[in-house]
């Protein structure tokens, strides 16, 4: 049953992993370059003229971590598997775009956030006896 569901996803959805056409192209001409912490797999055409990512699950470009991002966009020649970027101690963990999820960023004062309004113009402190 699960296999059937996977097959259905592969055939009819574009937001899980890669589309069937992309998988076909990769399987014909691509070679595996590496895999990131989330399990996304990176391929390139021989010589590196085309580069792909096959998402492990939901296809969302913001899931590509910063170390793979420049390679994927042809900014860097070497993938992080060969030339790992220097990690600074102050660097934070990569977080995909959370918009649309309960973890989305709410600015202070947002009604969907804490509800406490920030000080605004025209506010005053009233005298209380």
């Amino acid at each position: 049953m699960r296999l059937l569901g996977r097959l259905f996803q592969l055939l009819f959805t574009w937001w899980n992993g890669a589309t069937i056409g992309t998988l076909w192209t990769i399987s014909r001409t691509g070679q595996l370059v590496g895999e990131d912490e989330q399990g996304n797999r990176y391929y390139q055409q021989r010589g590196g003229s085309r580069r792909w990512v096959v998402y492990n699950g939901y296809a969302d470009a913001s899931r590509v971590p910063p170390e793979w991002h420049p390679w994927l966009h042809h900014t860097l020649k070497e993938p992080p598997t060969l030339a790992p970027p220097k990690v600074k101690p102050w660097e934070k963990e990569h977080v995909p775009n959370m918009t649309g999820t309960p973890f989305a960023y709410r600015p202070p004062g947002s009604l969907a956030g804490t509800g406490a309004r920030a000080r605004g113009t025209g506010d005053y402190e009233a005298w209380k006896p």
């Binding site: 005053y124 402190e125 009233a126 005298w127 006896p129």
Partner: peptide, 18 residues
């Protein structure tokens, strides 16, 4: 000072309390 300690409504003293 224009934003603090403002009298913003009338008060009437009733039974010793405003």
């Amino acid at each position: 000072g224009l934003k603090r300690q403002r009298l913003d409504r009338p008060y009437v003293r009733k039974d010793g309390k405003l």
